[in-house]
């Protein structure tokens, strides 16, 4: 199972943990598995068909926008990172 790590703002929707495991051989399947268990997460990052433009998804350290997007292959030892923009500086 792939590991999914979430940025702090997204953690409340999966019950507060920093990372979870998810099933799937590509990104779309991995995310679907997560959404089935945590519907609130879908609302936050993928309310429509495609991924929201304010959220960056990395497989290992690579941005999936420059791989195959939702079709990007995800192996059992891969780490998916969900990272929305942060602005705090004060």
């Amino acid at each position: 199972m792939a590991t999914v790590r979430l940025a702090p703002v997204l953690r409340p929707s999966i019950g507060g943990s920093k990372q979870v495991n998810a099933q799937g051989s590509n990104l779309s399947e991995v995310l679907s598995d997560l959404y089935s268990r945590y519907p609130a997460l879908k609302e936050q990052i993928q309310p429509e068909e495609s991924l929201s433009r304010f959220i960056n998804v990395y497989v290992n350290d690579q941005d999936v926008r420059f791989l195959q997007g939702l079709e990007t292959q995800v192996g059992p030892n891969d780490t998916v990172i969900l990272l929305p923009a942060m602005a705090g500086g004060r």
Partner: peptide, 17 residues
Amino acid sequence: LYPEPPPMALAPSCAEA
């Protein structure tokens, strides 16, 4: 990096964060 800003609920930029 971020083509669009996130919606308010996902924008942890406020002092309250």
